[in-house]
């Protein structure tokens, strides 16, 4: 490996933190969903790096599955967001805060 494993882990960690930030701080449901996708990609990166480090294909297979699952997640998520938008006319998560305590 040209790039050390620890560097990639660090990079994946930073990417993951950015994803969390995007998912938590953004005030738009679609952007929050994108944040989650970034988190998934960070995990995928760590998998590929680990696969390369140990010369084992499982990590790469895992990434392929992550692609498929992320697609399923986006389709469920977007369907729900479209439904919510039709019902309330807003994508701002603040709208969805009637239930408390």
């Amino acid at each position: 490996m040209i790039v050390p494993y620890s560097h990639i882990l660090m990079f994946a960690g930073i990417l993951f933190a950015m994803g969390i930030f995007c998912a938590v701080a953004r005030r738009n449901l679609i952007m929050m969903l994108i944040g989650v996708e970034i988190m998934l990609n960070a995990a995928g990166l760590a998998f590929v790096a680990a696969a390369l480090r140990w010369q084992q294909l499982e990590g790469q297979v895992f990434v392929l599955f992550i692609f498929a699952i992320a697609a399923a997640e986006v389709s469920v998520g977007l369907a729900l967001i479209v439904y919510a938008y039709r019902r309330t006319g807003s994508l701002d998560p603040e709208t969805y805060n009637i239930l408390r305590w």
Binding site: Y5, A12, G19, M39, A43, E58, F62, G77
Partner: peptide
């Protein structure tokens, strides 16, 4: 749920690593 499963996946990548 999506955030939790992403966190779990990141954990899995460390365990695998």
């Amino acid at each position: 749920g999506a955030c939790a499963s992403a966190v779990m996946l990141f954990g899995l990548s460390y365990v695998f690593g």
